[in-house]
């Protein structure tokens, strides 16, 4: 059963960079008067189009600054593209993001609900998954302690446990997240792989070509904001590696 989940249609994203750092209003005024404020246009994405089918695991590869993260932000609705249209089959497209909106004065318990609400979970869902989150994070003895007393490892464990409790229709992942000590890193990596191979539609950015080859069925290769190649994972990965070796 093939069905479109996301359609990206001719998306372009232009940023305006100010040419000179104008640091005061006076400078701004004089520069404006002399018409010297030039905006350098930076094209983060240009005319990108592709379709994601249900159950696809799509890898996005490219060098630093190729526009991978910008593309993910546009798909998840955080940014509006300068040109083009995006169509989403599922209602919410959350980006996997750790610890957004944690409040350090509140307890772990309260933060599970706050962070969960920010990630778009419903109350009923969080109530039913609460025990699972606490158990997975291994933070049961500290769950009623304010977050400001947590160690950074504990924070990341809690954040990871909340973020990955979802069973989303579409999953957007900017690099596989592995947090905590070595043991928890293994555990979290396994959880990520489970999430991504569970039949959900996944958009996945990574610099790890082997991981991409292993996980994805299709790959989009971005080069300076343009689509260089779209196709089967092996094909695109081979081409990408080849170009890499040539340099």
């Amino acid at each position: 059963m093939e069905q479109d989940m996301i359609r990206v249609e001719n998306i372009s994203m232009h940023f305006r960079l100010m040419n000179d750092r104008i640091s005061s209003i006076k400078e701004m005024m004089t520069a404006l008067a002399r018409r010297k404020v030039k905006f350098k246009e930076f094209h983060a994405l240009e005319d990108v189009s592709f379709t994601v089918n249900r159950g696809d695991v799509i890898g996005i590869i490219g060098h630093n600054g190729a526009g991978k993260s910008t593309l993910l932000k546009i798909i998840s609705g955080i940014m509006k593209p300068s040109k083009g249209r995006i169509w989403r089959g599922a209602n919410i497209v959350p980006m996997l993001e750790l610890g957004s909106g944690f409040d350090y004065d509140l307890s772990g318990h309260e933060n599970i609900y706050l962070n969960g609400a920010i990630l778009g979970y419903s109350k009923e869902f969080l109530q039913s998954k609460y025990n699972e989150i606490v158990e997975y994070s291994e933070l049961e003895p500290f769950i009623h302690t304010p977050l400001r007393n947590y160690s950074s490892g504990m924070l990341m464990r809690l954040a990871f446990s909340i973020a990955t409790v979802v069973e989303p229709e579409i999953l957007i992942v900017d690099e596989v997240l592995a947090v905590g000590d070595e043991r928890f890193q293994e555990k979290s990596k396994k959880r990520m792989m489970e999430l991504m191979s569970g039949g959900t539609t996944v958009l996945f950015v990574s610099h790890n070509i082997d991981q991409i080859r292993e996980m994805c069925n299709r790959v989009v290769w971005l080069d300076h904001g343009k689509v260089r190649m779209i196709g089967a994972a092996d094909e695109v990965c081979d081409a990408y590696r080849e170009q890499f070796l040539e340099q």
Partner: peptide, 18 residues
């Protein structure tokens, strides 16, 4: 609504928490 509820509760709780 759940998010609004959580954010309002957060502001209210943290204001006088300590």
């Amino acid at each position: 609504s759940f998010l609004i509820e959580q954010l309002v509760a957060r502001d209210f709780k943290t204001k006088y928490k300590r």
